[in-house]
Simulated assay, not measured.
Amino acid sequence: MQDNARAFFEQAIATPSPSGYEEPIQQLNRDYIAPHADRVRIDVHGNLIAESGDVHGPRLMLAGHCDQIGMLVSYIDELGFVYAQTIGGWDPQQLIGQAMSIWTQAGEVPAVISRKPIHLLNDHERKKVVSLDEMWLDVGAANDQQAAEKIRIGDPVTLDLRMRPLMNSLVSGPGMDNKTGMWTVIEALRRAKELAGTDGLACHLHSVSTVQEEIGLRGAKTAAGGINPSVGIAVDVTHASDCPTIEKNKQGDIRLGGGPVIFRGPNINPKVAARLMELAEANEIPYQRAAIGRATPNDANVLQLHGAGVATGLVAIPNRYMHSAVEAISIDDIDHVAQLLALFAAALKSDDDFTPGG
């Protein structure tokens, strides 16, 4: 992985992007990919779309959502404590005792989120699962007026956005879901253009950093409406099973560092999946297989159903501890995913037929 690509990933993890508040990370994406793309635009929904290749070739859409779960300021009490509702799917237990950031018009306001100490809990409170309304954000304000000088209702909130290196090329932090997938589709365009050389890509590649996936796959749906792709590949995280308490017979044998996870199932075009596996094997890219027997809970779902139908693939990045402050992924995995996507784009030609049985 090139140093500038690694730096781009680290900056992405440190950039806030709760669903509906993705402008800062889309600006980061634009700054990184603009020198390599033929065209970069942001649509009315907030999706960033970077294009390269033959505008008359088959339209390939690579979709990786940039939004992360977060919170939204909804009330400030008279003592200056801040209350917030969730954006996306939170386990409230993950929030107790966390360092947080409120992203205001004037910049970041540090906060902590907690509840009353265990010493003060009664027997019933100690046994029950804590609910969100029993927690609050403390910014250190003396009263509501002081808090309101910086914080407004509707300001987004995230966990403390830090990436920590672990052993064996693993890294941990919030927002790996799905800034990893976002990074791969943006980086894939740069690499695909390099692979194509002076001849250029035969396909018309659209690398899309989609928005609002965490609240209903909204960005991918509208982006596909504007692009009308022939082929689409969604990139998201999937649960790794190489840690305690995860049952492989239910989740599959998915390992960090094992390479891209290529899905098969009714939401997936069989020829797209087969092409991805063939390219991985031909180019010595390690990969893992996974199955899903229903509509996927990610951008692949809406891609497949767009218009008269899109030949859809799903490539996933193994992720431990999803939707927490300590999500863990392998840098090697995202590097391999970006390379596999670039190879797919470079190989796509006008006469490719992804019709099942065709």
Rank of each mutant, 00 (worst) to 15 (best):
Q27L: 14
R218V: 14
G20N: 08
W90F: 10
G70A: 08
T245F: 14
G97Y: 03
T184S: 14
M100E: 09
P58Q: 11
E284S: 15
T198R: 10
A346Y: 07
D242K: 08
G46H: 00
Q212C: 04
N283P: 12
N228F: 01
H65R: 09
Y321L: 00
Y287T: 03
A106F: 12
A234F: 00
I254R: 01
V82M: 09
L303C: 09
G265S: 09
A148E: 14
V185E: 11
C66S: 14
L217R: 10
P266D: 12
T296K: 07
I292V: 15
R39N: 15
L201M: 09
H45R: 07
T222E: 12
S172K: 07
K221R: 15
D77E: 08
A5E: 13
M71I: 04
P297Y: 15
S74A: 05
G20L: 11
R6W: 05
A328K: 14
E149V: 07
L303D: 07
R115S: 06
E108Y: 03
A338S: 13
G154Q: 13
T245K: 15
E284A: 15
P18S: 13
G181P: 01
D333H: 07
P35S: 12
L62A: 00
M135I: 13
D3V: 04
P16M: 09
G173N: 10
G97D: 02
I76H: 01
L159A: 06
Q27Y: 11
L95E: 12
V231A: 08
H306I: 03
G107Y: 05
D133S: 13
I113H: 00
G20V: 04
T296N: 08
E187W: 07
V139G: 05
R126M: 05
R41C: 11
G173P: 10
L166E: 09
D144V: 07
L79I: 04
A345D: 01
G80P: 04
L348F: 08
G64R: 05
F263H: 11
I153S: 04
L205M: 03
G307W: 03
D199F: 09
A280H: 01
V272Y: 05
V82Q: 08
V129Y: 10
Q98L: 05
N228C: 06
D155H: 11
V310H: 08
A338K: 03
G309K: 07
P156M: 02
L256A: 14
P35A: 11
L60Q: 06
A12E: 09
I87R: 05
P92I: 13
P270W: 01
H124W: 10
V40R: 04
A99Y: 06
A311E: 01
R30W: 12
L166Y: 07
V185W: 12
V130F: 11
R59D: 01
P297L: 14
A37E: 04
G307F: 07
H124P: 00
Q145T: 08
G219K: 06
N228A: 09
H56D: 14
